[in-house]
Design a protein around this nucleic acid. Structure first.
Lengths: 211, 211
DNA sequence: TCGCAATTCAAACGATTGTTTTAATCGCTA
DNA sequence: TAGCGATTAAAACAATCGTTTGAATTGCGA
């Protein structure tokens, strides 16, 4: 049970507290209390509060992006001759978030709330970290979408992919609240969300384009 | 110039500070400083910090919802016999936010960032305020969409409208950052956003439905 | 088992937080 | 203009914040 290192316990507690109460109420005293460690341990291991938050984001963001890129890469291998299916591309982008959330022992579900909040918080450093990390992978997926839908103007792809990411981010942050409102088990609500989100993305990208 | 009442200056300053630096860095000392008033004036006029934040949200939210409902109502009057156009319905939902943002003398553009952050912050009281306010108008628009697209299952409408709201919310919060990244004037970027967002919503709702 | 580095701990630092108190000032009516 | 309620102002309150300090403790290689 508590075979986790102090560093890991601090990261997990930070993640939980951000997800539950947001950045505004986050304090390193609450973190150290929930992590069953000392105040100074946080500064000892992470330097300061800001760097701790960045570690929380980086830890899982790196993993999420790697999984997404691997799934997209595998897709390209399988369909080397022809452009790959649009639904598969969107699946490669959305599903890794699903896996992350369902893998409760990794605490990914909590992290997606953190991510949604980090977006909205938009403190200069956080936003810079997120945008520099996100930009390359977004370009890769936009290119894959272009191959799947060559008739779509690149600008249209840019906008609609942007909106799909928005719908995904919003849905992630909405968790708990929406599933409670619908009196549905959270994991069931999530599976439904991803399924509907992919259909939604495909629909928005394959509809007729006429101004 | 400074013909505004103390109450209004406090509300405006709060709005600006949340939009610029988020809830985490918001303090009533910064608010009173920017509003050129005294610390105690905030507690005198609004009770406490939490109630002040709620006033900031309510002030413009009420106006936004009223405009949306009026536009939807006018639409129903004009097309009483037949179901009204889907694009018009989405326009009635999205455009009021546009007007709000473009009307700089009302400071609406700033408020949309506040709204996007309030969503992500998800402190119990804020989220409760937003969801209780939002639920009725969402039901109204979902019904209008149903009339415009009677062949779409109600559940599909629910999900896709939810995603469209997500894309809208995300885009609002993204402002400034994205327009700066694209080296585009903010108002131009916004007009483009709304235009693309409506096309995006129509596309996602009118595409063929096959699981 | 000794010794040293890594880690944890309690305590205090200065700064800032939201709120309250008490006095001064304003604006309007009688 | 006198007086009174509404508003603003300065100051202090207790609480909490992030960070630092220096000593105590741990764990592991020699």
């Amino acid at each position: 049970m508590t075979t986790l290192s102090t560093k890991e316990r601090i990261l997990n507690s930070t993640e939980n507290l951000i997800a539950e109460h947001g950045f505004a109420e986050l304090s390193i005293r609450k973190i150290s209390q929930q992590a069953h460690t000392n105040l100074a341990a946080i500064n000892y291991h992470f330097g300061n509060k800001q760097q701790l938050i960045e570690h929380v984001l980086e830890r899982r963001l790196n993993n999420l992006f790697q999984v997404r890129e691997k799934m997209l890469h595998d897709l390209n291998q399988g369909n080397s001759a022809m452009a790959c299916n649009l639904e598969q591309v969107l699946h490669a982008f959305i599903a890794p978030a699903l896996y992350m959330i369902n893998d409760r022992h990794q605490g990914g579900r909590v992290f997606m709330k953190v991510l949604a909040r980090a977006y909205a918080e938009q403190s200069e450093s956080l936003h810079h970290l997120l945008s520099t990390r996100y930009t390359p992978i977004i370009k890769e997926f936009a290119e894959a979408i272009h191959l799947a839908c060559p008739e779509l103007p690149r600008e249209t792809i840019f906008w609609r992919f942007h909106f799909i990411i928005g719908a995904l981010t919003y849905t992630m942050g909405d968790f708990g609240a929406s599933s409670r409102a619908k009196q549905m088990p959270e994991h069931e609500y999530f599976n439904k969300s991803v399924e509907e989100l992919i259909k939604f993305g495909v629909a928005s990208l394959t509809a007729d384009v006429n101004s």
